[in-house]
Design a protein around this nucleic acid. Sequence first.
DNA 1: AATGAAATTGACATCATATCAAGTTCTGAA
DNA 2: TTCAGAACTTGATATGATGTCAATTTCATT
Lengths: 205, 205
Amino acid sequence: MKKEKVDRRSMRAENSIKKVLEAAKALFIQHGFKDTTISMIAKHADVGYGTAYTHFPKGKDEIFLTIIEEVIADFYVVANTEYTVNSKEEAFTFIHRNITRLIELSVQHKKMLAVFYESIGISAATKEMWQDISDRFIQRIAQNVVQAMEKNIAHRNDFDEEIVAGVLFYTVENNLWKIILDQTVTPQGVIAHNITEVYTNGLYK
Amino acid sequence: MKKEKVDRRSMRAENSIKKVLEAAKALFIQHGFKDTTISMIAKHADVGYGTAYTHFPKGKDEIFLTIIEEVIADFYVVANTEYTVNSKEEAFTFIHRNITRLIELSVQHKKMLAVFYESIGISAATKEMWQDISDRFIQRIAQNVVQAMEKNIAHRNDFDEEIVAGVLFYTVENNLWKIILDQTVTPQGVIAHNITEVYTNGLYK
DNA sequence: AATGAAATTGACATCATATCAAGTTCTGAA
DNA sequence: TTCAGAACTTGATATGATGTCAATTTCATT
């Protein structure tokens, strides 16, 4: 019951797409986002210049987005993890585990994420993608801030959940970028532990 | 004892520089960083295309940096403010005041800061400038984390001061950008208060 | 008045993007 | 089997931005 593609035309197309993506991935990692051009990609992929535009009409942005999407998917999984905690201690454990998970993901995809970081400033499409992820993370964290207030285990019951969620998210985010860009020598465990400690003490009583 | 510039040549040059900067400022605010070109600036400034490069050899980056420098100077003042606190309550008051100050500065220079934000992703020079400011802020805050530990008013005495400082800095930073980019409806007082509360509860006992 | 330094200028070389008309390959209907 | 036309490929080209430079003008000094 296989539905194999014996269609030689679409096989040819698939092959072109694959070659473009593979060449692009190597070049992005080697030269970064800005300094990788469509003609470089086409040349390395051994396809005509126009071919890149045939399959990726929006050009470099679209090629890069296609490549980065699978990396980002991993982060979405974390961002979408539902969770419930009943005490400060439980929260500490949970948050610490999630930060550790994010650090691991960042290290794992370090090279492409460094390019992603560069691209956020340059490509509107990428910027939007990161904005979406950020919002999702913040909304997820905010839900737990609300839970904490409802369960009366937060310092106050009138916290603005989004601002409080931002404390955790933005701190983690920026530390992840530092790890990705090799801009820190602080051990990852120290980073995870300190952030978790300050945040849980800050929110929970 | 005036040392007036009666030198007509340098007056002419000064005038060209002034015209370029004024035109650039208006165009940057109107069109943003990326969509403002040197030829637009030269045309609006009513000088030749090459004149812009005569006075600003590094082009758009240098023109923008010159314009934004005075805005940034205000932030440096805050980043360099020495302070000492002896209790959690004092810390709360101090931090809350500083955040409020930063919010006020951001609102005051909103339009140029929005362009600045865009430029950070595009211009290496601008990115470096913001990196410097960030580092300075973090070092300043870190000093106070160390103080808190020395005075034994922190939850722990083995916090990593830079990571903890980052909790405050990155949170404030990102909320300022949201205000500057009109991406939040949360009242500024609520923002300042929530951040201060979570951070001081997080660090001080 | 003559000299040359300072300042101005726009043409030009360079480079990247995006489009497109022309050519080639392949499928499916007649 | 044939062949019309869809799918795919291709590089030339238009567009637009940057940075450089040789020619020119303005001006201070001798």
